[in-house]
Amino acid sequence: MNDNTKPLLEIQNLRIAFDMPQGRTEAVRGVNLTMGRERVAVVGESGSGKSISFRSLLGLLPASASVSADRLALQGDDLLSLGPRAMRALRGRRIGMVVQDPKQGLDPLMTIGKQLAEMLKLCGKVPRTGLQQRVRELLAEVHIRDPKRVADLYPHEVSGGMAQRAMLAMMLSAEPDLLIADEATSALDAVVRHRILDLIDEQVRLRGMGLVLISHDLDLVAGYADRILVMYAGRVMEELRGGQMSDARHPYTRGLLACRPSLDHPGGELPVLNREAAWLE
C-alpha cells in the first residue's frame, strides 16, 4: 500500500539520451520536479523535452533511449526498478495519459463502448454484470449527452472533441493517481480546446488526482495550472505560479511571451527569439 504522506511524483536529475547514427544525443538534461495532487503545466517549444520527460515515467520511449535519474518515484515507488510486467500494471491504473490525437489512441476496429469495457475489465474495477452501465456512466461523466448511442459508435464516427472526451473517460475509468495530458487539445479548434481543458480540470479536482498538462500554448494552460514549468533544450528554465506568466524573469520565457501574435497589432512583425549558449551550461 502506498503512503499518502509521500509526494505523488518525485523526479530528481532526470536525463534521457538517444543513440543516433551521428552519435549520442542528450535530449533531457537534469529535470527536477516534486509534486503532490496538484496541477502542473509544462510548456516550451517543440523539441524542448516536455513529452519525453513524462513518457519516460511510463516506459514509452523507444529502445534507442536511455533513461537515468537520481530518483524517479510515484508515491515512493521507484519507477526505474520496475520490470516490464510491473510497468504494464502501472500504465492506466496509476498513471493515465491523454494523447494529442485521440483517434490514434482508440482502436478503429472497436466501438467506443467496447474499448471502455475492456479497460474496466483490465483494471478489475467493475463486475462483468455492471460493465455496460458503468460505460454509460463514464461517458456521461465527461458530458457526453447520449452515452448509450455514443458507446455503439466507432472512433471515426465521432468528432475530434467527442473522441477526446471518450479517451478521457477511458483514462478516468482506471482511477489513476496521476493524469498526463500531452498536448491533449492541440488537434482541436479554439472553442473545443477550452471545453476539454475545463472538463479535465473538473475531473481532476473531483477525483483528487495530480495533473501534468503538457503544451506549447502558454496562454491556454496558464489558467489551468497551480505551477508552470518552462522547458528549453531539455532543461527547466523557470518555474512560475499558475496564471502569473507576466512574472517571468528568465530571458527565454520573456522571449516566448514576446513572440506571441497580438490582436492589438494584427499583422505586425514578431520579434525573433534570441537563444544564449549560457542557458545550457
Rank of each mutant, 00 (worst) to 15 (best):
L90E: 10
L90W: 10
R91H: 04
R93Y: 15
I95T: 01
I95W: 01
I95K: 03
G96W: 11
G96Q: 09
M97V: 10
V98N: 03
V98F: 05
V98C: 06
V98T: 03
V99I: 15
Q100D: 01
Q100K: 06
Q100M: 05
D101K: 11
D101S: 09
P102S: 11
G105C: 12
G105N: 09
G105M: 13
P108Q: 05
L109Q: 11
L109W: 15
L109Y: 13
M110H: 13
M110D: 07
T111C: 02
G113H: 14
G113C: 15
Q115M: 10
A117P: 03
A117C: 08
A117S: 10
E118C: 12
E118T: 13
E118V: 13
M119Y: 14
M119H: 15
L120T: 07
L122K: 15
L122E: 12
G124V: 04
G124Y: 05
V126D: 09
V126R: 14
P127L: 04
P127T: 02
P127F: 02
P127Q: 05
P127N: 03
R128Q: 03
T129G: 05
G130I: 05
L131Q: 03
Q132T: 06
Q132M: 07
Q133F: 00
Q133P: 00
Q133K: 08
R134H: 03
V135P: 01
V135G: 01
R136T: 02
R136A: 05
E137I: 10
L139S: 01
L139H: 00
L139F: 00
A140N: 04
E141K: 03
V142Y: 06
H143A: 05
H143Q: 08
I144K: 05
I144R: 08
R145A: 12
D146Q: 14
P147M: 12
P147D: 09
K148W: 14
V150S: 00
V150P: 00
V150Y: 01
V150H: 00
A151S: 10
D152H: 13
L153F: 14
L153Q: 15
Y154I: 03
Y154V: 08
V158A: 01
S159D: 04
